[in-house]
């Protein structure tokens, strides 16, 4: 019986996920984005970015949860569909770090559009790719 209940909950969860993956046809940055970042192809870190738009500014949060930190600046140049992001977080050693990222939106008409680009803090550089869920 419990298994049936668990199965039903699992199905419900899957359906909710499916429903939540439907379009966000408004501001193209709004939504939950998943992906990875790193300084080499072998050294990757999972990342979740949640962005919203209040009609004037895009705000956001990186890795919601105890280790989260807000996006300090997000600008969209819709003439080129490029995005500039700045955030104050922590580096791998836990030291404060000012991250700067520049990326390009692609497949904008899709529910699962992507944002791909490069980031740096100080002399450390790398790339990232996130996809809107």
């Amino acid at each position: 019986m419990h298994l049936k209940g668990a199965g039903f909950l699992c199905l419900l969860f899957v359906l909710m996920l499916a429903a939540s993956s439907f379009a966000q046809e408004g501001h193209p940055l709004v939504g939950v984005w998943y992906g990875d970042w790193g300084s080499t192809p072998a050294q990757r870190n999972q990342i979740t970015v949640v962005m919203s738009y209040d009609g004037k500014n895009v705000t956001g949060l990186v890795n919601p949860g105890p280790e989260s930190f807000p996006l300090k600046l997000v600008t969209l140049d819709s003439t080129k569909w490029t995005v500039h992001i700045e955030a104050d977080g922590k580096d791998a050693k836990g030291a404060p770090a000012h991250f700067v990222g520049d990326g390009k939106l692609e497949n904008i008409g899709s529910y699962h559009r992507t944002l791909t680009g490069s980031w740096n803090y100080g002399a450390t550089k790398g790339d990232f790719k996130i996809k809107r869920d």
Partner: peptide, 26 residues
């Protein structure tokens, strides 16, 4: 607004192919 204008133009240039009413019966 600028982003909305550019998104509208993009949809127009794509011949409205991403229309969710057509694609997913929204």
């Amino acid at each position: 607004q600028r982003w909305a204008r550019d998104l509208y133009e993009l949809r127009q240039r794509n011949f409205l192919k991403d229309d969710p009413m057509f694609l997913y019966c929204m």
